[in-house]
Nucleic acid binder design. Structure first.
Ligand SMILES: Nc1ccn([C@H]2C[C@H](O)[C@@H](COP(=O)(O)OP(=O)(O)OP(=O)(O)O)O2)c(=O)n1
Length: 1020
DNA sequence: GATGGCAATAAG
DNA sequence: CATCGCTTATTGCCATC
């Protein structure tokens, strides 16, 4: 492949990126000790990396962004009320009832009908035999054999919205696809104002019989497609704003339908001339609707023509909701651009203005584009050994500031201090020019702080469109210059370009060659972008190129191609530590404490070099980080960094996907959070489907207001100081179903048990993404082999949990197919304290299930693929408890204390009782039980008891006697259980004493308060 | 010793 | 009014088996 071809990798109209890290620009926090530091801190310079998980209010770190032009419209998520599958088993035997998850359908034909049929023994056998092996196995495995534990506890408190395992289905909002063709004809006939555009007579296939509308429309369709194609040829392809949109225009509009048609087609959409039952129209454009149509179009996204016009003007598809013609409640004002996280439009409107969202989206798009264009036989590894690499790191100078200033036109980039930000006080500066930097202003700083440093600072608005445009031009120019063998996108304003040169050339020749390229490229970019300047760092390794870029800024270049190790090392030594890639505040801090005595504010590489060895670095900073740093000091890349060169497609392939919202999160009830999670999951699953991906694992991460942080932080709608918590869930089978995923996430949310009002951030991440097309392959690997390794194997647990008659049918079917039937597994060696056993006893069924039907221990792989909800219940107790215990007993040193506070918040005290209405009681019970289990030998720690006591008192005050009672029952049965183990005597006694002296009186008092004439005694 | 969950860190 | 504190990836630590 020659360099021109390679250069084509990134030639497209839209995006690009180029530029180096901003480690040098976003200056790290200064030391707290130094006078200068405090000034800077006061100035809000403290960057990422506060000890606290999130920024304190005085920090300035993040900034705005805008909505992803490619994101499809969000709809209000539609939850199917019930999966309809759960009813399949009639409870006519004494077995535990269960349900099939809605992800059963994958391998099943007509999964919807199946259950109903399955409930009839006869046809069930028939149907079973019609399934292929995989589908059969999957059917079994997806059986969730339990009553939902939440239910039982939900009874205890009123009105808890329950989270059921699989109650959601992805219901398309355009569900009206089944309309008969007649409707379509009707549509047109009924609308004289929008007649079919061309009379049928001219069709090449010959004259049509009068009234043969069907043929007419078919012909018409083909004709129109050709027209559209021509239109695109004439006007050139524009950004695919309406990609995946199928648009129909109803009635008279302004602009008229011809204009709309043209625009829809040019910008990547499909224009439907009629509402066909066969194609799913995604949007209907109308200026007004008759009441009849209003009803008819209820299920469509009906928008005003402005949606088209504005979207094109904005250069991206705007959220359709703002242009909705039909609003659920006509009284409610539609265009609420308020920052209300409860609004269905919140996500879209927030994204539209978040700079960080934009940066991330652009980057992801660039990476995807790279992967799709890279035909990939250029691997660095395949090159002849003699080839030398020249790495060019290219980055716009103060990108946003420059572009915004140019767009405005009134300001001088060189002379006036400029900065891009939304607001005037606690708003973050996305980018400031070098004139501003001379005053100490930095990217990420709050405007207020910056103004203190530089009162004349001029604030500029964001102009995301232009950023995108300039970025595209940059990449196009990089391609056009033809000097590079690879163009690797780093971000919207930054790229790494690679040039191969022959060993035969002298150092001098290579240097000259690169020097020429760099100079001419800088000029070219300045011209093509009409005034944006780039800096270029050129080096023989990635790290040298990056450092050279630092040196080159602003508006210059720097070449470091020397092969003399001495000069390379002295070059590297001259940089500050935080200018090394991957070295931020935290690592610098560690280095300072471990290697440097003097309280240098910004230590250099030279400082570190003098005071460290590779070994020391590794032991203090971790193996990878230490080794990497050691290499960097010699100007060499580590293996990890080189991946981008060795296998760029793998490097740029998406491995996860997430939505993080840590701004404007202010909810009152968990139900509102549920709805929000639904919207996020909807957004993500849509995106996942577009990309043809599925996920086996989802993580929920939340931010919770710190106990001591004010309810409203300094920054308007900011998150303030928060603690972060996260939880992971696995699906039995990788999925892209919104319902399944959202349910898991909502369940995780409850596990994290954050009082709704203290929630300040929500992040949902899909991990370990894989291609949906690999699903089958993957699925095979997922199940534990039971003797027929070629096929997926049965989930033993699920199999044994099946109702008897089913099981025998399935068994028969399985053995017919030579798939081994999981016989009762021989009990493996007993799990010491069997949380499993107890779990079953508590949650699975009131009376313990027949022993034989459940594996008595868990093998890991099996565990791993259990539905997360079950896994959690199995594992959670000890995991959380140990953490709690460990932390509780630690001394009150600040960091530990934080942990302490965090865990306590999470598990006990500051929980408003009201929030426990959901499944929290269950969690608390589990926790208490594990607590007992863990402390049965030594007895409860007194500090723990004090906390627990407070909690009980609260319960009592709130009149939750029933729950206290429940708790006591649990505790006493737990103690009884332990009484059979001799070692537990001492601890048990302590526990019993506590119960007698504290809980029993409390309970009695609580009953008394409520006028209940009960008196509890406690028989130990 | 491998694996996995969760937290911390970095980057633009 | 304000204000739009995202998203992806790697690494480290600890617990578990
Ligand atoms: N904390 C930050 C850092 C960066 N950006 C945005 C605005 C920048 O213009 C763009 C590129 O980031 P750089 O780190 O390259 O910074 P600049 O281009 O602004 O300045 P420099 O000349 O130092 O590269 O990313 C941001 O919004 N918030």
């Amino acid at each position: 492949m020659n360099s021109q071809e390679l250069a084509l990798l990134l030639t497209d109209s839209s995006l690009d990126a180029s530029r180096s890290r901003n480690a040098s620009q976003a200056s790290p926090p200064l030391q707290r000790g130094s006078p200068l530091a405090s000034e800077h801190e006061a100035a809000g310079l403290e960057p990422r990396g506060d000890k606290r998980v999130e920024n304190s209010d005085n920090d300035c770190r993040y900034d705005g962004r805008r909505s992803d032009g490619r994101r499809s419209d969000n709809d209000i998520c539609s939850d199917a009320s019930s999966d309809g599958i759960s009813d399949i088993i009639h409870d006519n035997d004494s077995e535990v009832r269960g349900r099939w998850g809605s992800d059963t359908g994958v391998g099943l034909r007509g999964a919807d009908e199946l259950p109903g049929d399955l409930s009839q023994g006869h046809s069930r056998q028939h149907l079973l035999s019609s399934l292929d092996d995989e589908a059969l196995i999957q059917l079994v495995n997806s059986y969730e054999p339990r009553p939902k534990p939440e239910r039982r506890l939900a009874d205890a408190d009123e009105g808890s919205p329950s989270v059921s395992p699989v109650d959601f289905e992805n219901v398309s909002d355009v569900s009206d696809n089944d309309r008969a063709p007649e409707d379509a004809r009707h549509e047109v006939i009924d609308c004289p104002q929008t007649p079919p555009q061309a009379p049928p007579q001219a069709h090449p296939d010959g004259p049509l019989a009068f009234g043969d509308y069907e043929t007419y429309f078919k012909h018409k369709h083909v004709q129109q497609q050709q027209q559209d194609q021509r239109l695109r040829q004439i006007h050139g392809v524009k950004p695919p704003i309406f990609k995946n949109c199928i648009i129909y225009v109803n009635g008279r509009t302004n602009p008229d339908r011809l204009v709309l048609h043209k625009n829809v087609v040019l910008y990547g959409g499909v224009f439907n001339h009629y509402l066909s039952g066969k194609t799913s129209v995604t949007h209907i454009i109308a200026s007004n609707l008759t009441s009849k149509k209003r009803i008819e179009f209820q299920k469509y996204k009906v928008v005003t023509p402005d949606w088209i016009v504005d979207s094109i003007a904005a250069g991206e598809r705007l959220p359709w909701q703002r242009y909705a013609l039909i609003t659920a409640n006509p009284n409610q004002p539609t265009i609420s651009t308020t920052l209300d996280c409860k609004s269905p439009q919140f996500l879209a409107s927030f994204f539209a203005k978040s700079r960080l969202h934009h940066l991330s989206t652009w980057k992801a798009d660039l990476r995807a584009k790279f992967c799709s264009k890279y035909v990939g036989d250029v691997s660095i590894e395949r090159l002849p050994k003699t080839t030398r690499l020249a790495i060019f790191h290219i980055d716009f100078d103060c990108f946003f500031a420059t572009v915004s200033a140019l767009a405005d036109g009134r300001y001088s980039l060189e002379k006036q201090p400029l900065a891009v930000a939304h607001g005037v006080a606690s708003s973050e500066i996305a980018s400031c020019n070098y004139a501003a930097r001379a005053f100490g202003v930095r990217n990420g700083m709050w405007v207020r702080s910056a103004k203190r440093l530089c009162p004349d600072l001029v604030l500029l608005p964001y102009n995301f469109n232009q950023y995108e445009v300039k970025s595209s031009i940059l990449y196009e120019t990089l391609v056009a210059c033809g000097a590079f063998n690879m163009i690797l996108p780093i971000s919207v304003d930054e790229a790494i370009c690679v040039r191969f040169s022959d060993e035969a050339l002298s150092d001098e020749a290579i240097r000259n060659d690169c020097s020429k390229i760099v100079s001419s490229l800088r000029e070219r970019i300045f011209e093509s972008t009409q005034g944006c300047s780039v800096s270029i760092g050129c080096g023989s390794s990635l790290v040298l190129a990056r450092l050279a870029l630092k040196r080159a800024k602003p508006g210059g270049f720097c070449i470091q191609l020397s092969r003399d190790s001495k000069s390379v090392e002295s070059f590297v030594s001259s940089f500050k530590l935080n200018e090394l890639p991957g070295v931020g505040y935290s690592i610098v801090d560690k280095i300072k404490t471990n290697f440097l005595r003097k309280n240098v504010s910004s230590p250099t590489v030279a400082d570190l070099k003098q005071n460290s060895t590779r070994q020391a670095l590794i032991s203090k900073l971790g193996s990878k980080t230490g080794a990497k740093l050691a290499l960097f000091m010699e100007g060499k890349d580590d293996e990890e960094s080189l991946k981008i060169l060795k296998d760029p497609v793998e490097f740029f392939t998406r491995k996860s996907m997430s939505v993080d919202i840590n701004y404007a999160i202010r909810f009152d009830t968990i139900h509102e959070i549920d709805t929000f999670i639904d919207r996020i999951c909807d957004h993500l699953t849509q995106k996942m489907k577009e990309l043809g991906l599925i996920t086996p694992q989802v993580t929920l991460k939340i931010l919770r207001r710190c106990a001591h942080a004010p309810i409203e932080p300094e920054k308007y709608l900011g998150s303030g100081e928060c603690d972060a918590f996260s939880r992971n869930s696995r699906f039995g089978v990788p999925t892209d179903e919104m319902g399944v995923i959202a349910t898991e996430v909502k369940s995780s949310l409850r596990m994290l048990s954050c009082p709704p009002k203290d929630l300040r951030g929500v992040a949902v991440q899909f991990n370990k993404l894989m291609k949906a097309s690999d699903r089958d392959k993957q699925r095979k690997g997922l199940f534990v082999g039971v003797g027929n390794p070629a096929k997926g194997s049965l989930n033993t647990l699920a199999y044994h949990a099946l109702p008897k008659d089913f099981r025998s049918d399935i068994k028969a079917e399985l053995s017919k197919r030579n798939i081994s039937v999981p016989e009762t597994p021989p009990p493996k060696k007993a799990v010491t304290i069997s949380p499993v056993k107890d779990f079953w006893a508590r949650h699975w069924k009131q009376d313990p299930p027949p022993k034989l039907e459940f594996p008595s221990s868990l093998d890991n792989e099996f565990m791993v693929h259990l539905p997360s909800q079950i896994q959690r219940e199995l594992k959670q107790d000890h995991a959380i408890l140990k953490k709690t215990k460990r932390t509780m007993r630690k001394s009150v040193l600040s960091k530990e204390y934080k942990q302490f506070e965090k865990v306590i918040n999470r598990n006990f005290l500051s929980e408003p009782i009201k929030f426990q209405a959901l499944d929290r009681p269950k969690e608390i019970l589990s926790l208490v039980q594990s607590w007992i289990d863990d402390s049965i030998n030594s007895g409860p720690h007194s500090a723990d008891l004090i906390l627990f006591d407070k909690y009980l008192t609260k319960l009592s005050d709130a009149g939750k006697t029933h729950f206290i009672l429940r708790m006591m029952n649990l505790m006493s049965s737990r103690l009884e259980y332990h009484s059979s183990y001799p070692n537990s005597a001492a601890g048990r006694q302590e526990w019993e004493e506590y119960m007698l002296r504290r809980i029993v009186p409390l309970l009695n008092q609580s009953c008394h308060n409520r006028g209940t004439a009960l008196n509890f005694t406690f028989d130990v």
